[in-house]
Measured scan of single mutants.
Amino acid sequence: MQRVNMIMAESPGLITICLLGYLLSAECTVFLDHENANKILNRPKRYNSGKLEEFVQGNLERECMEEKCSFEEAREVFENTERTTEFWKQYVDGDQCESNPCLNGGSCKDDINSYECWCPFGFEGKNCELDVTCNIKNGRCEQFCKNSADNKVVCSCTEGYRLAENQKSCEPAVPFPCGRVSVSQTSKLTRAETVFPDVDYVNSTEAETILDNITQSTQSFNDFTRVVGGEDAKPGQFPWQVVLNGKVDAFCGGSIVNEKWIVTAAHCVETGVKITVVAGEHNIEETEHTEQKRNVIRIIPHHNYNAAINKYNHDIALLELDEPLVLNSYVTPICIADKEYTNIFLKFGSGYVSGWGRVFHKGRSALVLQYLRVPLVDRATCLRSTKFTIYNNMFCAGFHEGGRDSCQGDSGGPHVTEVEGTSFLTGIISWGEECAMKGKYGIYTKVSRYVNWIKEKTKLT
């Protein structure tokens, strides 16, 4: 034993070699072989497995989906700052455009905790909710729209109204504003409101030439003092309507412009014939205590009207009353817009006519005020429907199939267009061939041609 100890002390290297040989010859039971080890760690190889990531292109799944990435790591994937920024906006807080917040056709661009709407022409605001041009839906104005110097929408209202708090709607500024039905039992019968379409306001006024200088022999019209197929109006439903009495009662109609003036057809009036105007009328054979009678003290036909040349060209006249009318729910003026808007309103496509005229061709006159909704007829169809001249200051309205029309005794009465609950004068009943005849239409004086003249002559002093 002493000898062994001496050998170990003198030859430590020998001992180490012996131990190493023993270990190498022993069977290893701690580690699995290569094949079995792979069965336990069965993990798919990654895209760049075996390579240094710093030297390969980034992978979106590896960089940002398996674990949260930084902007720089995302930049490695896209290799483009702009594309990385677009991805980053949604990656950080989701897609803010998912709810489609942009209105009126706006395009949404996502941002971090926010979004941006790219608005089409005519709109602005956070969600493109603000109209900035009158060309689109009248700028959301209830009545009139004008573009300011910086191309912003400025709404306005006709006389007797003021802008509401929203700067879009119009509200009454006087007790009985024009064009409004205020009798409670008839307010439910107000005709369907007309909503502004998209309009090209630059070209809204037709490029028409008034044929002022045409000389033409007097034409022989049949029954051209021209509501057939209409309905009984309720008291106060058309408070701007008046009836004219002269040699015979209810020979023509008219509309209240203001307390002192009536507008009617020029062919209705004769110099030297006494005319009485009755406002607030409903049943011409009954006294309903809503009527107001006034005498006409002055007749002003349009300066281009000449019955000797043509009885229905420039067929418009103004009547001055001896005493002002007292405005109330049964006696209310009709609204008159400017030339541009009167023309736009007419193009809405349908209007209402009213009167006490004959209820059928050569038949009896109506006792109760009649009204009828009539569609506008395109000019080409209008011209083809008659052998008589249709001037540019006239328009056609009615039904091709016949059966409904204005008729004798309705002449001078109103053709009105309702705009968001307020009625505007767009025409004056003038003439036609018979009444409600198939293929024939009622012919009306186009008020847009005469609004400046009306307003100039009827100013209240």
Rank of each mutant, 00 (worst) to 15 (best):
G106S: 03
C407Q: 04
D200F: 11
E171H: 06
V92W: 08
V181L: 08
N328M: 01
N245L: 07
V195T: 08
V269D: 02
N343F: 03
V154Q: 14
E401Y: 08
V243A: 13
V242H: 00
G351T: 02
E288I: 05
A192V: 14
Q57I: 11
S329M: 09
I429F: 12
R191D: 09
N5C: 14
N5H: 13
S114K: 04
Q370N: 08
Q370H: 13
R75D: 15
K137Y: 06
S430A: 09
R384W: 04
V326A: 10
L321T: 02
A192P: 05
Q143N: 02
D338V: 03
K438A: 07
S187I: 12
D249N: 04
H34T: 15
P333H: 02
P12A: 15
Y391C: 10
D150H: 10
C134K: 03
P101T: 04
E66R: 05
C396A: 02
I256S: 01
A366H: 13
C108L: 01
E53N: 08
P414L: 13
L211V: 14
I210W: 12
R162G: 05
C407E: 03
I344S: 14
V416Q: 06
C97K: 01
S350K: 12
M6F: 12
G253N: 02
V257L: 06
V273F: 08
Y305N: 03
N213M: 08
A366S: 05
L41K: 09
G398Y: 04
P172S: 09
R75L: 08
N36H: 09
I284F: 13
S169Y: 06
I299Q: 07
Y47R: 06
S204K: 15
N59P: 06
I429W: 09
A233T: 08
N36Q: 11
G439D: 06
A337G: 05
T458D: 00
L346I: 06
F424Q: 00
F399T: 13
V56D: 04
L460P: 11
G179V: 00
Y352F: 14
L321K: 00
I309E: 09
I300C: 04
G398E: 06
E171W: 07
R62S: 13
T29W: 05
F224P: 10
S187W: 08
Q216E: 11
P414G: 11
K339I: 07
Y201H: 10
W118C: 00
G363T: 11
T29N: 15
K45G: 11
G122W: 02
E420W: 09
G21R: 05
W431Q: 15
D378Q: 07
V447E: 00
S107H: 08
T417K: 01
K109F: 04
S184R: 09
N80M: 05
I316W: 01
G357C: 11
G230Q: 08
N104P: 00
K438M: 07
C170G: 02
L60S: 12
V359Q: 14
F196K: 13
E323T: 13
V257I: 04
W261F: 07
N313C: 06
C170W: 00
A149N: 12
R75I: 10
T422R: 03
V242F: 00
G253R: 10
F238L: 07
F176E: 03
I316E: 00
K39N: 09
C18S: 07
D198M: 07
Y22W: 14
Y441I: 10
K126N: 10
G13T: 12
T422I: 12
R46W: 09
H267D: 03
F87L: 06
G230V: 13
E420L: 11
D111Y: 08
A380E: 13
P414W: 03
V154L: 13
Q2A: 13
K446W: 01
L41E: 11
T264M: 02
P12R: 08
P172V: 06
T386I: 09
W240A: 00
F348K: 08
S11N: 10
V153W: 06
M394T: 04
V368R: 13
A26S: 10
N452I: 04
E98L: 12
Y371Q: 12
L327P: 04
Q143T: 02
A337R: 01
I275F: 11
G421A: 06
G160M: 02
F424L: 01
W453G: 00
L372H: 14
G246W: 05
T158S: 07
A37W: 04
E76M: 13
A279C: 03
I256M: 03
E129D: 07
Y341R: 08
K347H: 10
T133Q: 14
P101M: 03
P414N: 14
T287E: 14
V296T: 03
S184A: 14
C145V: 02
E61N: 10
P333A: 05
N343V: 03
A266R: 03
C141V: 01
F224R: 08
N100Y: 08
K438G: 14
G21E: 04
I428Q: 03
K260W: 07
K126C: 03
L211W: 12
I275P: 05
V368T: 14
F55M: 15
E418F: 08
I136S: 13
S255C: 07
L244M: 07
I275M: 07
T225M: 07
Q167I: 05
E340K: 07
V228P: 06
E165N: 12
E79M: 13
T190H: 13
I336F: 04
S423G: 09
D405E: 15
K260Q: 05
E10N: 15
F224N: 10
F395N: 00
V153D: 04
V374Y: 02
I390F: 12
V183L: 08
Y161E: 01
N80C: 04
H289P: 12
G442Q: 13
N127F: 06
P172N: 05
L211M: 15
S411M: 15
K455M: 06
N38K: 12
D410P: 15
E67W: 04
C18K: 02
T381A: 12
A366V: 06
A173P: 01
V263E: 00
Q167H: 13
